[in-house]
Design a protein around this nucleic acid. Structure first.
Lengths: 152, 152
DNA sequence: TTTAAATCCTATTAATTTGATAGAGTACGT
DNA sequence: ACGTACTCTATCAAATTAATAGGATTTAAA
């Protein structure tokens, strides 16, 4: 008897990035209403608390959230939810939106195997693909994730 | 003296996928003109030969290329270059185009941490992002990578 | 019919990344 | 001073990537 197991690996957004978006959305629902604690966000969003700590810290360094230390402290959004796009968060945690480094705006790198970038047809075409993804990822913001039913 | 090294990791297309696109483009330039050998493609495109072997084999299993075995053998395209899109090749080597598994058409999977998919605002928005990327990746084909100067 | 050439196929490897945990250190309200 | 919650760095196991290795198989040609 032969058992075949197929494992399909897919390159997608990292969990870290997804958790960040969820945490930001939770903070956005509380925008201008005080702060939330890591432990509460972790519970509400099903995120490992210690992992979330790192994420919120990175978001703080990126100046998307602010924090209040000590007892009774917590995190709060310091940017308008409409001004934090998926592209911003994706770039912070997962890097380039472009599929090839030579096509990236923020993470540009030359391809080692490329002989003439100026006439590279792949580069020309992958710029189009990047723009397709970038436009959509810039349009969707944290605000987009807040449902009307959340009355905010 | 402190030396700081910054390593930026970016999720992009895998090298395998990129090599596949380059190999397919090379074969496309030779479409209906006989076959090319792995070793020649490897040399022309700066791809490790043994690695390229695997790639061409996968492309064969996916019925994009055909092969002729034995001495004097090689590979040839069996689909029209206009009918092989970047999306097709990307899905074959790197998996889903969507950024979240719950949003993927071909690699759908439920998010473990999701409580109600029907009302999930993230899912709704990430479908838009997927469509932005998918449309562009479907439009660009192997034919797009062939420059006019290659007179083909 | 032997030999060489090329594809076919599977296993293995080192390096890197991910997702997470651990354990201090620091700030602050009570 | 005490407890709470953020800050920061180190570490870990599992998974993935990008190759390499080594045969097995097929075919043309000597």
């Amino acid at each position: 008897m032969i058992i075949q197991v197929f494992i399909i690996f897919t390159i997608m957004m990292s969990k870290k990035c997804k958790y960040a978006l969820k945490a930001l959305t939770r903070l956005a629902k509380n925008f201008n209403k005080g702060h939330l604690q890591t432990a509460d966000i972790a519970k509400l969003e099903n995120i490992p608390k210690k992992f979330l700590e790192q994420i919120l810290l990175e978001l703080k360094h990126a100046r998307m959230v602010g924090s209040k230390q000590g007892s009774g402290g917590g995190y709060f959004l310091i940017k308008n939810p409409k001004e934090i796009s998926v592209a911003d968060v994706y770039r912070l945690f997962d890097g380039a939106i472009a599929l090839l480094p030579c096509v990236s705006i923020n993470f540009y790198e030359r391809c080692e195997d490329c002989t003439d970038e100026k006439s590279c047809a792949m580069q020309r075409e992958f710029i189009k693909i990047r723009e397709g993804a970038r436009k959509m990822m810039s349009k969707v913001t944290i605000h987009s994730f807040i449902k009307e039913s959340d009355n905010q």
